[in-house]
Structures are given as C-alpha cells and as structure tokens.
Amino acid sequence: MNDVFIKTDTQRAMLTKLNQLTRKFQEREPELDQLGSFPYENIQNLKDIGYTSLSIAKEYGGEEISLYDFLLFQEKIAEGDGSTALSVGWHVGIMLELTENPRWESKLFAQICSEVKKGALLNRCATERNTGSPTRGGKPETTAYEGESTWVLNGQKTFTTMSYILDYFLVSATIQGSEEVGEFLVPCSAKGTRIEETWDSVALRGTASHDLVMQNVEIPKEYLVEIRNNGKKNNHGWLLHIPACYLGISQAARNYALHFAKAYKPNSVNEPIYTLPNVQRLIGEMELELLQARHFMYSVAEKYDACDEPHELQAELSAVKYTATNAAISIIDKAMRIVGARSLSEKNPLHRYYLHVRAGLHNPPMDDITLTQLAYKAIENVK
C-alpha cells in the first residue's frame, strides 16, 4: 500500500494487522476455486481482530470508521483474496450505511449492533431472477403480508453472499395490498428459511452467493425496518467497497507480474524480461491505470466524508466504480500479457484474478447506468 494514501495512525495500525492476514489469505485463495467453497478461516480471522464491527457507531461500541478508512481496508483484504473482501465488504458496508442513515427503531438497531460486536453477520437480499439488479427498478416478487402479530414472507432471492454463515438477512419484499416495498430483518434461524446451493459462477466462487428461499417465514412486526421509496435521500458511499475490492485484486495481479518480470530470464535474452521495452511499457501502463483509479477513488471518498450532503455525489460515486472496475480488468490483462501463456495455468492465480474482476461489471451500478447518469448531469449543467 502506497504511503500516500495512509493518513492516520489508526489506519496504519489496522493495515498492519490486515497485511499479516493478507499473506494467509493468498495462501488459501486457490482453495476457493472449488464449487461450494467459502473462506471460513478468513472471515473468522477478521472477526478476531474486530474488523466486522468497525463501522458501527461509537455509541454502540464500534469505531465508526469513515468511508475512506473502509476503502483502504477493503482494498488490502482483496489483495489477499477477492471473495473474502467482497463478502465481508457487504456486511461492514451495510453497517456503515445504517450508521450514516439512521432509520431503524433505535432499540432494535442497538440490539443488532450488540450482536455484531459479538460476531454476528448480515447481508442484504434484494436480487431476484425475474427482476434482475434492484438498481434497475424492478419490483420484488418476494411478498410480505401482515398477520395478527407477525409479518409473513414468501419468495426467493439470488446472490445471497456469505449465505453459509449469515446470522441475518435484510430482505426486500412487496407488501401485499399496497404498492410499497419494505425491507425486513429476517433471522437465519427463522422457520421456513433455507439456502439453495445455486452458486456455480466461475468468478468469486468463494462468496457462496447462493439463493435464499423463504416459505411462510414469520418474523416479528418490528422487523419491518424500512419502507422503500419514501422520499428520503440516503447516502450510498459504502458501495465503493465494490471498486476497492477489484482494485485490490488488480494490485495482487500487478505484484505477481512484477515479481515474475524481475525473476524470469529466458535463454533468448541476457537479462530478466523487465528490461525489455515492451514489458516496461506494459508495467508503466499498469502503474498509470492503478494510480489514476486509486487517486480518483480516494479523492471522492475524502470529499464524501467531508460533505454535508453526500447523496449529491452519486454521479461521482458511480464514476469511481466504472473507472476502477474497468481499470482492474485492463491491469490484469496486461499482467497476463507479461507472464504469457503460463498465466492460464490452473496453478497460476492470474486466470482467477481475471475472472474475479470481470464480475465487477455486474455489480451495481452497471456501466450503462453510470454513463447515462453522467450524461444527464452534464446536460443539466449546460447554461
């Protein structure tokens, strides 16, 4: 991690801990290429250093880290293993979002924060097969109806990251008899919930993003924690954990390629291949893209943390995700060109890194939405 991005002793202390774990994560990373895999040890390691509760407000016993802090830490975790970073990023990010946008009943939120301090994990379950990404406005087919003393949920959610070890699901559902969409807190222990193992992606297999199936799941009335589309403007800076993850993976690929270029000397040349002009050009291009993407991401994060109305930065937040994800794809492509055909070996991490970062194209917001958003903003600003 370039020191230019580390600004506080607190950041440096946590990064020192994460750097020690990153080496272990890299050693375990090949194991996560198997169907049904999950980085149990990695997540436990992060719990052990208190990482999973860092974004909780100080009044509830957390550290209330900033968005900038969060991205620094997520990028470092992803350098060790992308599946671990993306998985834990959803949990820590959602807790950061809920801290920034207090909308739950305070007693319930305090209870959940207390459980998170003890190691509980949660994730949002919003995507469905027929609606696609929730960012495109599809209405959930998952339904909730109000009983005498409970809410009853039925439906199926896809991409339930960390499905094997979650303690709570945050489920979006259409409320029967109305046009409203609610978000419900569903304990994993609730009768009628089950995980259907559908995750067969070639990228980020270790996230265990299986389907959540709910059949007549009853939860307390107070577990309706939010009504969507209620006119409130929420802050969504926490979603930058997605580009931070992919930049971390590209950093790992860049490191691998540099070590290779410095060590590999075929018998057709007298020096290691890093001395060759074409390899130097590829290294220089990797460095430039990584610097551009990281400076952009951290400058927007700084602006977000200092802003009184951070929701007004949505176009810039989207642009960071677009820039970082596409830069990560390009950087790893160049790393593979440096290493050559052996980068496609099953034993070589580069082919996995390349597959992992391509998954970023399908994380929100999608590229077309970002470009349309920027275009509209540009037109609106024309005087």
Rank of each mutant, 00 (worst) to 15 (best):
T84Q: 02
A335W: 05
R205E: 05
G231C: 04
N363M: 15
E148Q: 13
I94D: 07
G147C: 13
T8D: 01
P277I: 07
E197I: 07
V217F: 03
F25N: 02
E141S: 12
S250L: 13
E79P: 06
L98V: 03
D200G: 08
G248A: 05
F109N: 05
Y223R: 04
Q373Y: 00
H241E: 10
T22I: 05
K24S: 08
Y264T: 09
A144Y: 10
W104V: 02
L35A: 12
S318G: 11
R23H: 10
N230M: 02
I6H: 01
A263H: 02
T150W: 03
K265S: 04
S87Y: 01
L166N: 10
N381K: 14
C125S: 03
E312V: 07
I6A: 01
V186T: 03
P30S: 14
A253T: 11
T22K: 15
N326S: 09
E180F: 12
G340N: 10
A257F: 10
Q111G: 01
G177F: 08
N42M: 12
T22L: 10
E148K: 14
Y322S: 08
F296K: 10
R136C: 04
A257N: 05
D81C: 14
E285M: 11
S53W: 02
R205Y: 02
G206K: 11
T372F: 13
L46F: 06
R337P: 00
